[in-house]
Simulated scan of single mutants.
Amino acid sequence: MLRDQERSSTARVVLPARPRKLAKVPFVELADGRLQGVVSSGSDIARVYVSSVSAGSYAFTCSTNNNRPCGGARGSSCKHIGALLTEAVLQYGGERVARYLEVEVSAEELTAQAIADAMTATNPPQGDAHTAAPVFSRFLRHLAYLELPPTTEPLPEMQWFPPTRAVV
């Protein structure tokens, strides 16, 4: 059954469940049937990892920004996927992340660790690494907006957003 927002041509802005720091996981989203995002490398400031977990199957992928596979994601999920899941719970809340990924956890266990444990118990397969390019592209697009000078004028490419004030 579709909810009202799924029938609407506009999407409401969902505030983060809790504030989060962007240094470790600058980009996280629930999109395309996956939890996906960009995770900073702990050892190289110029390297980031694009990680994702598919809803339902929990198939996971993790690769660098230049499409090299993550050394820690061999047979099981890596620390980048753990960091992505932790930040997703901060951003969206445990209930929404668990529901989106189709993970069965009790209402008392809506933590990133409980969700990860429930997914790991199913022995998830390694996913398709070709999902990294569109995720990284969206991340770069978000970064481009940070370089724009502050303005109250509308951006032409974002005109599909509903107006925030009454138009006279």
Rank of each mutant, 00 (worst) to 15 (best):
D44Q: 11
Y49G: 05
V28R: 09
A55R: 11
A46Q: 12
V50S: 02
R34K: 15
A17Q: 13
I45R: 12
V25G: 10
P16Y: 03
S40P: 06
A17I: 02
S51A: 15
G42P: 04
S41K: 11
V48T: 14
R34F: 07
A59Q: 12
A46L: 12
K21H: 13
A55W: 01
Q36G: 10
P16R: 10
L22I: 11
R18E: 13
P19F: 00
G33K: 08
V28E: 08
V53S: 03
P26C: 10
P19Y: 00
Y49V: 04
V28S: 12
G42E: 09
L35D: 03
V53C: 04
S41D: 11
V50E: 01
D44N: 14
V48G: 08
A17R: 12
G56H: 09
S41Y: 06
R20L: 15
A31G: 02
A59F: 03
S51M: 03
G56I: 06
V48K: 15
P19I: 00
S40C: 12
S54Y: 00
A46M: 12
K24P: 00
V38E: 00
P19S: 07
G33F: 01
S41P: 07
V39Q: 03
S51W: 02
V39F: 00
S52T: 08
Y49N: 10
R34G: 05
K21A: 15
S51I: 02
S54R: 14
V39R: 09
G42L: 08
P26V: 08
A23R: 14
V53M: 08
C62D: 05
S43C: 11
A59P: 04
K24Y: 00
L15W: 10
S43T: 15
G37T: 04
Y49E: 08
Q36E: 14
R20F: 15
S51C: 14
P16T: 05
V50Y: 01
G56W: 08
V53Q: 03
A17M: 07
R20H: 14
S57T: 15
A55F: 02
G37E: 01
F27H: 11
R34Y: 10
C62A: 07
A17H: 15
V53H: 01
L35H: 03
C62Y: 02
S40Y: 01
P16F: 01
S51Q: 06
G56A: 11
A31C: 06
L22H: 14
Q36W: 03
E29D: 11
